[in-house]
Design a binder for these strands. Structure first.
Lengths: 198, 198
DNA sequence: GTTGCCATGTTAGTGTCTCTAACATATGTG
DNA sequence: CACATATGTTAGAGACACTAACATGGCAAC
């Protein structure tokens, strides 16, 4: 268990963790060099584990999506399948995630060069989206909601994602200070679920 | 009209324009140094007109919002006041703007250090949002839509903004390739406008 | 066990970037 | 016409991403 001066042993994960912390603390202006200092290695060390900075970011994003998905599953399991409460809870958790780690949330959802369809960040993202959207589809089919369940699911996702984005970027405040975003989303969700037949 | 070797004459605006072009062409990875080369000046020249890089970005954002607002006004004026077509047209234009200049769109809506409530970027943003939201409020009151007009307006904005974000970041493709985003938004908007009374 | 390979660390260095300091020039106002 | 000031320059500091060449130590074959 002795930490040898030379070989770190867990450097790969240590750098991923340090980067995620820096993203929390410093926002977009995080640097790989800072992560190295935090992990106690030289600034050249990361290149034994990652091709470039983007590859570390992709790992951070992948873990972000894994966290988001596992949180969503945990929150969903607190409510009966097919209930409105379950959908609402998942949506609220989506927003809480964004508010809690706004810069990570932005990075997760922003297209970067070097982000292919097959890498882990994309795969975890797909998995996460699939769960969220499937929850809504299940609800719609279970409750006989009029209209295309998939489309309604995507509309709900879009609404919640838009609300999360506009919240963490402070854009709501520009037009309507002290707005109740939660009420806005819940009311919007109900309208989307109870609306017309198209 | 002779371009003197020393004094550029229009450097401030030239740098703003060059930066916006670079944002279009290179995405987030644009550099001030590149904008200087494009404007034909040294890399120290910008600091006679701007305190730092963020101040140039704020100008670019301000002009982006000015463009967005003027486009929205132009598009709205093609349709009768209070018509659904008018709302839809403004929403479509919002999305077209995002698709046309995705990186600018992201920068416009992302909180940055150095972005205060009083600077031009924020003011133009407010003005732009106010127009979009007011359009919907006007529609709701003119057509006797049930519910809080302001809240419905914000819900529509949220939906369209979410759709724009998820589109330009390629996130829809991860779960539902070849989705018809326009239909999704139009249908969602109709549901939001025709929904329950809460 | 010893030997040697190779994974994983290091130091040193390149090129780029933002921003500053000190200096240069041109413009327009008295 | 003089010169103050706005606006440009060159030089350089400090940070960063990334590379090349070298060092070390764990592990596998013998």
């Amino acid at each position: 268990m002795t930490k040898m001066a030379y070989h770190h042993g867990e450097l790969r994960q240590a750098l991923i963790d340090a980067t995620r912390e820096l993203v929390r603390e410093r926002g977009e202006a995080f640097s790989l060099a800072d992560a190295c200092r935090r992990a106690g290695v030289s600034t050249a060390a990361p290149y034994r584990h990652f091709a470039d900075k983007d590859e570390i970011i992709n790992e951070v994003v992948a873990q972000g999506f894994a966290d988001m998905a596992s949180r969503a599953r945990a929150v969903a399991s607190d409510h009966p399948t097919g209930s409105v409460a379950r959908i609402i809870a998942v949506g609220r958790d989506y927003m809480a995630f964004a508010v809690n780690e706004p810069t990570l949330f932005r990075i997760m959802f922003t297209q970067r060069p070097g982000l292919t369809d097959e890498n882990i960040a994309s795969l975890n993202g797909k998995e996460c989206f699939r769960f969220v959207v499937q929850e809504v589809v299940d609800f719609c089919t279970a409750n006989g909601i009029a209209g295309d369940a998939m489309q309604i699911a995507l509309q709900l996702w879009t609404l919640v994602h838009g609300a999360a984005s506009l919240t963490i970027d402070g854009d709501y405040d520009k037009i309507a200070p002290r707005i109740d975003v939660d009420a806005l989303v819940v009311s919007g969700a109900q309208r989307l679920l109870s609306g017309g037949t198209n």
